[in-house]
Design a binder for these strands. Structure first.
Lengths: 133, 133
DNA sequence: TGAGGTAGGCACCTTCAGGTAACTACTTCC
DNA sequence: GGAAGTAGTTACCTGAAGGTGCCTACCTCA
């Protein structure tokens, strides 16, 4: 029948919306940026190329698993390059591509916003918390 | 003793870094933006004020729980205002503040980047997947 | 000779964010 | 009179992300 319960309609809408979101480039990029480690790796590499172990030291606290996973994802998206030098202890260098560099600039814009407006957000929070004591 | 195993040093570094990240305004903002529903609510409200039920319809698929949670967080950070009109079915309007508007503009910058570079990212992915077949 | 570095891979395990369902209290529409 | 809307709240539950530990294989330094 043509009639659906509200729950059924919501379910249908949810499925459609999920598909829409997965196809949306903005959403996909946000998924990338939102990754805790992606932003840190981008920031670390923005000063120049780095080796795997340099990264793991600079980004203290990252597990080898997540570092590898993050780097692979960035490499797949063409944001970093991975260069293997087959010397005796193998040496692997990671470097931002031009595309990766432009994304890092975007991150800088976010950073700038955060720094200039942080006081306002902080003040709003204190006020809100005080009012809803 | 002054000597620590590598694992202990990693653990220590992780704890320190976590504290550092929680204090970092950029990271806090990224946590906000990275929230799936926050970005959608911001986008929805950028066209003008909306009622609770309008939002839940426009952002199809959001559960009432998450919508409330998201709106409360945004209100707390001073990014949206919540106005209750005590008419007979109570009416609640949500609207972006000036601060929220500036954040929405930042989101627009992200959107623009995503749209202009999506093809490059997509091409890089296809190439990567082809090479690592 | 064994401890640590270099660049990860693999499998298990836990946690918690977010979804689901049910409820409020009052109203209007069919 | 019951179904649906308005604006949520509360309790419960699951799935997937991410952390931990253990492994390779070769090298160097003390």
């Amino acid at each position: 029948m043509a009639t659906m319960t509200a729950a059924q309609k919501r379910e249908q809408a949810r499925t459609d919306y999920d598909a829409f979101l997965r196809a949306c480039p903005t959403n996909q990029l946000l998924d990338r940026l939102s990754d805790k480690w992606v932003s840190l790796v981008l920031a670390a590499l923005s000063t120049g190329p780095m080796r795997y172990s340099d990264l793991s030291r600079k980004i203290a606290g990252v597990s080898p698993k997540m570092l590898t996973q993050t780097l692979r994802a960035l490499e797949r998206d063409g944001l970093v390059t991975r260069t293997v030098t087959p010397s005796v202890p193998v040496r692997v260098d990671y470097e931002l591509t031009e595309l990766g560099g432009s994304l890092a600039q975007l991150m800088t814009a976010v950073k700038t916003w955060a720094e200039t407006h942080f006081d306002e957000v902080h003040a709003a929070r204190e006020q809100y918390d005080a009012e809803n004591a």
